[in-house]
Design a protein around this nucleic acid. Structure first.
Length: 195
DNA sequence: GCCAACGTTGGC
DNA sequence: GCCAACGTTGGC
């Protein structure tokens, strides 16, 4: 079980405390939290630096599953805690890579639950301002589904007219972001040489 | 509650 | 290594 993913290095040892405002909820990302139609599946993108934990690492992990821990950004946390549901699919993106690219698909197999690394003083991502009673930080479990036939690199994404609104492009630094169904389809098509 | 300083992500 | 974007902190 990997200790860290692509996330803020040093967490504020102060107090991220309770969720403050959620600006995106009234913005374009509100859909990520809205009520679902029965059986609706949603799509996400999660980032990891391949030097830290790559998609290949996930493929050889026990049950090809890992907890997506150590996220210390409140917007990303909200997606983990409130947005992602069991059965949702997520692109696995390699950041700080050459090239940075979407390389695989994984599935949410456990919904948001408290991230224990935030409560462990010995852990790099310990957050002294959080506590077990009202956890500040959450994670999900994801399981590898498959590697893409070919990686879809960031420059190609930026070149695609259909992907101009991708959160990955518009909000570069967030480690967990929603993906619209049409964007999902476009990336899949690109990975299969159909676009 | 404003906002300047500071820290972090991650592309380039 | 640089720096744009942007979240967080803390002075006032």
């Amino acid at each position: 079980m990997p200790a860290k993913k692509s996330v803020p290095k040093k967490s504020a040892s102060k107090k991220p405390a309770a969720p403050k405002s959620m600006p995106y909820e009234k913005g374009a990302w509100a859909a990520a939290f809205s009520a679902r139609t029965p059986g609706e599946k949603r799509y996400w993108l999660i980032k990891s630096e391949p030097d830290v934990f790559s998609f290949d690492d996930l493929l050889v992990a026990p049950k090809q599953t890992t907890c997506w821990d150590s996220v210390r950004n409140s917007s990303a946390r909200n997606f983990l805690r409130d947005g992602m549901k069991k059965g949702d699919l997520a692109f696995y993106y390699h950041s700080n890579a050459d090239p940075s690219a979407i390389v695989g698909i994984c599935e949410v197999v456990r919904e948001g639950y408290p991230d224990p690394t935030a409560l462990d003083p010995a852990h790099d991502y310990y957050d002294a301002g959080s506590n077990a009673e009202t956890p500040t930080w959450f994670m999900v479990d994801v399981k590898a589904v498959k590697k893409l036939a070919s990686a879809v690199a960031l420059p190609a994404i930026k070149d695609s007219a259909a992907l101009q609104e991708m959160a990955l492009v518009k909000v570069g630094r967030l480690s967990v972001v929603p993906v619209q169904p049409d964007e999902w389809e476009t990336v899949i098509a690109m990975s299969e040489g159909r676009a």
